[in-house]
Design a protein around this nucleic acid. Structure first.
Lengths: 146, 146
DNA sequence: CTTGAACCTATAGTGGCTAGAGGTTCTAGG
DNA sequence: CCTAGAACCTCTAGCCACTATAGGTTCAAG
């Protein structure tokens, strides 16, 4: 029987997570409900640390909670092959690459906008001008960010 | 007196915006309340098209609605210098650059994770392994994305 | 006069938390 | 044993920028 020693504050410090975030993960079923003390306070064990660290690391790598949920469920069936885990990671990599590409197009456009340093009045301001008229843009087919 | 001819659907098509988004912009005070028809339907004029196009273009370039709100208010006082508009755009450019840098670190980490193609069982899966143990990462000091 | 598209309002949901109110429990010191 | 204050509890609302749904009204064409 593993030790059930940690308070939620300990778990938070141990994993670099904020306390409300831990309760949030529990509410959405990402962390199992822990035991409670006589006074109704949550008591965690080492297995919770591991699971939460896994989640946080997934978040650090930009995975969404749904992806993390699936990756967690995969670890519960270790007889499976890597196939699904690799697919999830590869899909995420593709999304990250897409976002980088879109942000780089944005960066170029913003730099172009700022290149024309105008010290004059706002009526001649390049920034405002570009915003007011889409035709000033190189690529008018931006996709929404985020 | 300018013509007040367009329905909200026209304005939406004209600017590539969804109808509920236009109503949302009105609610948060980004678009002025338009005239209404006898039957209470919104009627827009050319000035609304310009203003909405400005907003959408700002969004395409990744500006937040607060930044756009300020840029719009600048255009109402054209005797101002470009200084503030340039500062807003420069600040946004810096944020975009930061996001690109963070995403590129992420991309490298994900590629490293997927490099080790494992056809074996999930117990040996590199993806899971890395997620389960932060020490597998090159940089353990990721900042949260978004 | 009827059909159906487009409009109206109002509310709730998205993701991933975060902040606050208002109350209880635990722990250390006196 | 008592008290102060830190840490815990639940519940609700807020963030961004929309998007979706429900349930109703108005408008244009046939």
């Amino acid at each position: 029987m593993p030790s059930k020693n940690f308070t939620i504050g300990h778990l938070a410090r141990e994993t670099g997570t904020k306390v409300p975030t831990i309760r949030y993960y529990e509410k959405i079923g990402l962390l199992p409900e822990p035991f409670r003390s006589a006074g109704n306070q949550r008591l965690y064990g080492a297995d919770h640390i591991d699971r939460l660290a896994f989640i946080r690391h997934g978040r650090d790598l930009g995975f969404g909670l749904d992806a993390i949920r699936e990756l967690l469920s995969l670890t519960d069936e270790p007889e499976q092959t890597c196939e699904r885990a690799d697919a999830i990671a590869a899909q995420h990599l593709r999304e990250v690459e897409n976002r980088i590409a879109r942000l780089q197009a944005l960066k170029a456009e913003l730099e172009r906008m700022l290149d024309h340093q105008c010290d004059g009045e706002l009526a001649d301001c390049r920034v405002i001008e570009v915003l007011a008229d889409h035709r000033h843009c190189l690529h008018s087919d931006h996709q929404r960010i985020d």
